[in-house]
Write a protein that binds this DNA or RNA. Sequence first.
DNA 1: AATGAATGAGTCTTCATTCAT
DNA 2: AATGAATGAAGACTCATTCAT
Lengths: 201, 201, 201, 201
Amino acid sequence: MAARPRAPVPDKRRIILDAAVKVFARQGFTQCRVADIADEAGVAYGLVYHYFRSKDAVLDTLFLERWEVMVEVIGQVDQQDLPAREKLRYVAGFIDDSYRHDPDLMKVIIVEVTRAANSFGRTHMPDIQRAYGRLATIVEGGMRTGEFRTAVTPAFAAMAFYGVIEQVLTQWIFAEGPIGDEEFDRAKDLIVETVCGGLNG
Amino acid sequence: MAARPRAPVPDKRRIILDAAVKVFARQGFTQCRVADIADEAGVAYGLVYHYFRSKDAVLDTLFLERWEVMVEVIGQVDQQDLPAREKLRYVAGFIDDSYRHDPDLMKVIIVEVTRAANSFGRTHMPDIQRAYGRLATIVEGGMRTGEFRTAVTPAFAAMAFYGVIEQVLTQWIFAEGPIGDEEFDRAKDLIVETVCGGLNG
Amino acid sequence: MAARPRAPVPDKRRIILDAAVKVFARQGFTQCRVADIADEAGVAYGLVYHYFRSKDAVLDTLFLERWEVMVEVIGQVDQQDLPAREKLRYVAGFIDDSYRHDPDLMKVIIVEVTRAANSFGRTHMPDIQRAYGRLATIVEGGMRTGEFRTAVTPAFAAMAFYGVIEQVLTQWIFAEGPIGDEEFDRAKDLIVETVCGGLNG
Amino acid sequence: MAARPRAPVPDKRRIILDAAVKVFARQGFTQCRVADIADEAGVAYGLVYHYFRSKDAVLDTLFLERWEVMVEVIGQVDQQDLPAREKLRYVAGFIDDSYRHDPDLMKVIIVEVTRAANSFGRTHMPDIQRAYGRLATIVEGGMRTGEFRTAVTPAFAAMAFYGVIEQVLTQWIFAEGPIGDEEFDRAKDLIVETVCGGLNG
DNA sequence: AATGAATGAGTCTTCATTCAT
DNA sequence: AATGAATGAAGACTCATTCAT
């Protein structure tokens, strides 16, 4: 009798990571105890330590899993034959969609890592800088083709671009209710319009 | 012999606040113990609690002292008869100078409050929103006079503007050595040029 | 012009003692801080320490002031030419009236001293025993004249008599509302009736 | 070789409770630190908090464990077909034996709970009142059959009876040396003789 | 792999007491 | 006498991590 294909049972490690996202998002990394992760995952306390060296390692794993994808995406977009503005729009859209698809994970990454200057933000500085660097490369390309002005340096422009995106996500994170699809769609355009078009236009 | 005028002796409460800025900047709020503040201030442990209800209250006080000044400044700038772009430049310059003058304090405010979504950032949300609101009013004025395009809402523009500034300060905070005067001076222009001029120009 | 007689202004020391009774009764000795006493008295913090060596000394003073009167009364009653039962009734009445007249003070004495075996009860054991001794002397007299049976020792009888009184006061202390005059009046009789008459009668 | 039967190894929770009795009795609840309990039990500090929510919870547990047995016993005695006086004697004997068997535990219950009006006494008032109520029921039965006079109310008699017992235990608690068996035996009779027989007899 | 009991370092806060004025 | 700032010891509680099964 042929076994029917079924959704793969996620292994315990994955279950723990997913549970960690939930509790980190809900309570914050510091406020959450390892026991909360285990409870949310429905596994024994000690199993968290079987799969991860420490509580920190759980967050490190979550962050890197997603961040490396993002850095990779930024790199690949830059390979495409597109106007620089379209490349930035694609990046903004990717991050925007990441939040739309898994707001808890993005909340954790933003709040607990990229904005946490005294803890994980410092640890992962090289990773974060890598993303900045790739964004700067995109801007640089736009300047080389004459699409972008050279009033600011590529590095500054990249930083500003990321700063605007992070601020948008932060707004959503603080928002009470869920964000509507129209708002997600509009955000992509507003971000690019602000950074590329400027207020004076 | 005539007594030379001397700087007024700061009271103990002030000494404690100033010491707290130093240790919060150096070690981070969480990593610093109340004993560190007392030691840095050269006062007895208990005196911190004589003047402040809790460790949290020390940070609250530091934040509000400076933040209210900033909100006030933004409001007053908007009263001036100036192009909106000049108003934004003034605000950027004020924050920039705040960092130049007292980097430790600004570091604490940015890192421990405005970017700390799960702790003081949440507590002081109303204060932070008040600043956003005043920035939005400046942008709105610019749009009303036709100086600014209306491609994005005033609120979005204010948020983006603040996001860029915060990101610049964050860079400085992470930087190893001290920031040079030229960099401070240039930053004001770059921020405004980015948000107002845009990359496309 | 002749000065009119006026109520004597209580000195600060007295004011502090009276305030202490209030706050000890309200919050309990341990739960009340020295600052609470000073606040209630309307004097400066340090003045409490000008008049009293320590917080403990305040309670010691309050206790002894009243307790010595009581011991004295028990002694004097025993000098009278009265049946032993009447003597006991007088003592019960005196304590009963003490509570009626100043429930806060009696509450403090009972709760914080005579029933506090691990703190002031131990310190003032000799004082408390002195009262027991005088009660025993009364009982002993009753036995010598044949008024009382000798089924129990005078010491045991004294202890029982005091135990019943303390339990009655404890009930009042725990009671929500104020105690009515009839209850005070009846209590004196019930106490004596119980200890002298017995349940079998 | 046949394994000799051995006493079951008490679990750590029990060990902690027993250690707490010792140190509470020796130093008093307030004077004892949680570390003292852990040391006496020979376990790590944190284990106390693994089993109990707080230091208070340890005492609550100790009190209730024993008090509920006592309340139960009083209720069961009343079911027996005995003269009321015999019932009271049985209750006095049970409490007396409780002290004889485990003076530390009884000391803790009396000193730290039933006589501690401002702390645990208040918390456990309902439990204490439940015991009073059952004693009153016994007295009431004695009055209904005519065995007891109705000069005082059952509630008052119950309170007096308990007051005398508590005072006896308090004497023992304060006593320097150990109490002899004869004194324990005699106490049962003296208590009942005092409350039932009365001094006048 | 899985469990959860056991460990113990770390720190905020309280508050009685002292002291300079 | 009167004030209140200054001192610092003490202790409950948390929780990441380890470890024996």
